[in-house]
Write a protein that binds this DNA or RNA. Structure first.
Length: 527
RNA sequence: GGAGCGUUGGUCAAGGGGUUAAGACACCUCCCUUUCACGGAGGAAUCACGGGUUCGAUUCCCGUACGCUCUACCA
């Protein structure tokens, strides 16, 4: 007996509270987006934390589509969400796309399941029918400055609380539109423990009588989330902080319907804020400040409104995920670069922040640069090759292409930078920055390069060291400093003041191209 | 308005009664590099405010301010 107690105590001190009592249950989390548009940074981060937590604990990650509002249905949005997840490498264990034992995973297809629970609440006096029209409600809102459908006002409205049983039945039989609302208890303390914020409590009177079942027979989020989390055996529920104020409704629903002991542990994630000023980061901020907010390109089919994605901006999914993980979480060691498997291993809820984080695109770019730099080019060369082809540059030699990518990769922040940084390896530069050469150009240098061409024509070993040696020796003979020659030569070969070492470039583009580019620029300088 | 949640440099953040208050991004200077970048060395810059508790508070408590979120038959 004594020993048993000791073991329990020990156990309690080691195991986080949010896993206590869950030891026998497999961890199951869900991401529950509504398919109304592009997938936002914050959405992906919610997915990520769900995923990391589940995988860290060997659990399941479920995606459930919350499409209970048919007026907001957007064609293609669901497919887009799954494509984003696939791009990020966050594969669901169960979803409408991947199937699973709790199908269907679209709430619109689960419509029939919800009403029985709403009815049960009505039966138990925990919810009621309301017949008020939207117009009547609007009128009330105008009449009272802070109108809420609550203990204060529900007596003055048209609902089964006020109507007699017969009147209610008559209205129902006549086909009068109705909704079911939860009856929020008066002045009750509702509390729960949030994994991130600890004990949170609300007074029940503060919330209004939320609609549970809409006039079209669909549940609202409030009912659907509770019913489905129960049916799908969700153990931990992550969502944005904006949901905190409606949590008491959900806690109450759990208490009424399934019992608090089955309620998942809640975690309300801090918000991702706009870089300047305050407030939630929105697509609008991205447009304004020139950075993507969505994971991938998204065009709203209704408005044709286009939003650029991180993927198309040239981000590696590894970098995108890494950057998102660090927005609100860190492992305490100062390490910032993590692969997905590392994140899974290190992730823990007790290191998730409470406060929101302003999104910093500069830092996001740094993550991508690090990933480009530290990843073998083979990993992304196919994608970069496509970028070259889009720019009208055909790549024929893959081995040489990858050599070039490797040579320039630390100069690239996004994948698209490779085109600018390496196009001149495969195509003669169209624009030569003559203005950068001209001020210090003279006949002496002209003669030098003329002679350099002749020497290059005869060079036997066309490679870096040999070419450098030749230029230096010839510079000495002409009483010129190599430094005065390097920049002109670079511009002749590259077109501008960028790129890797000049002799590396000459070595790769070959004798013919090197000579012809020098000749061409010399002609331009003559003109 | 109400309620809830939050607040360490410009940004992300570590720390958590005694520290010169880590580190990263960005910025500035220098070194390396005969371009740019990478790399290296430095610099500037912070505990929102006011009360407690304490020998001592950035850290604990209480207020205040500020910010955000919610306040739909949207999620």
């Amino acid at each position: 007996m004594y020993l048993f107690g000791l073991v329990l105590q020990l156990g309690a001190s080691i195991i986080p509270y949010y896993l206590c009592g869950m030891m026998d249950k497999k961890v199951r989390v869900r991401f529950a987006p509504s398919p109304t548009g592009g997938l936002h940074l914050g959405g992906v981060r919610t997915v990520l934390f769900n995923y990391l937590f589940a995988k860290h604990h060997g659990g399941d990650f479920i995606v459930r589509i919350e499409d209970t509002d048919q007026t907001r249905f957007v064609a293609g949005a669901e497919a887009y969400i799954f494509e984003c997840l696939a791009w990020c490498g966050l594969t669901p264990d169960e979803s409408p796309l991947h199937g699973g034992p709790h199908a269907p995973y679209r709430q619109s297809e689960r419509k029939a399941m919800y009403s029985q629970y709403a009815m049960q609440l009505v039966q138990n006096g925990q919810a009621y029918y309301a017949f008020d029209t939207p117009e009547e409600l609007d009128a009330k809102r105008k009449e009272f400055p802070n109108f809420q459908y609550n203990y204060q006002h529900r007596t003055g409205l048209r609902n089964s609380l006020m109507l007699s049983e017969a009147e209610t039945q008559l209205l129902l039989q006549n086909g009068t539109p109705w909704v079911i609302r939860i009856k929020m208890p008066d002045n009750e303390d509702i509390r729960f423990t949030d994994m991130i914020r600890g004990d949170v409590h609300f007074n029940s009177s503060q919330s209004d009588d939320k609609v549970l079942l809409k006039a079209d027979g669909m549940p609202t989020y409030h009912l659907a989330v509770v019913v489905d989390d129960y049916l799908m055996q969700i153990t931990h529920a992550f969502r944005g902080e904006e949901w905190l104020p409606s949590a008491p409704v959900h806690v109450l629903l759990w208490q009424y319907l399934f019992g608090l002991q089955h309620m998942p542990q809640w975690a309300h994630l801090p918000l991702i804020l706009k870089p300047d000023g305050n407030g939630k980061l929105s697509k609008r901020d991205g447009d304004r400040l020139g950075f993507p907010v969505f994971a991938m390109n998204w065009t709203d089919p209704r408005t044709n409104d286009f939003a650029q994605g991180f993927r198309e901006r040239g981000f590696l999914p590894e970098a995108f995920v890494n950057m998102l993980a660090m927005l609100g979480w860190n492992d305490g060691t100062g390490q910032e670069i993590f692969s997905l498997p590392e994140l899974i291993e290190r992730f823990s809820m007790d290191r998730v922040h409470k406060g929101g984080a302003k999104f910093d695109f500069e830092k996001a770019k740094w993550f991508n640069q690090e990933w480009i730099k530290n990843t073998p080019v083979q990993h992304y060369s196919a994608q970069v090759k496509l970028l070259f082809e889009q720019a009208g540059i055909l790549i024929t030699n893959d081995t040489q292409f990858e050599t070039v990518l490797h040579l320039v990769k630390e100069r690239c922040i996004v994948l698209n930078d490779f085109v600018q940084q390496a196009a001149f390896f495969f195509a003669t530069p169209q624009n030569i920055d003559i203005a950068a050469i001209k001020p210090k150009w003279d006949e002496k240098k002209n003669q030098f390069f003329l002679e350099l061409i002749r020497a290059f024509e005869l060079t036997t070993l066309w490679q870096h060291d040999e070419l450098e040696k030749e230029l230096k020796e010839m510079a000495a003979a002409h009483q010129l400093k190599p430094g005065e020659l390097m920049l002109p030569l670079r511009i002749m070969l590259v077109g501008g003041k960028f790129g890797p070492g000049v002799f590396d470039i000459a070595g790769i583009i070959g004798r013919e191209a090197t000579i012809s580019r020098i000749t061409h620029t010399l002609q331009l300088l003559q003109a």
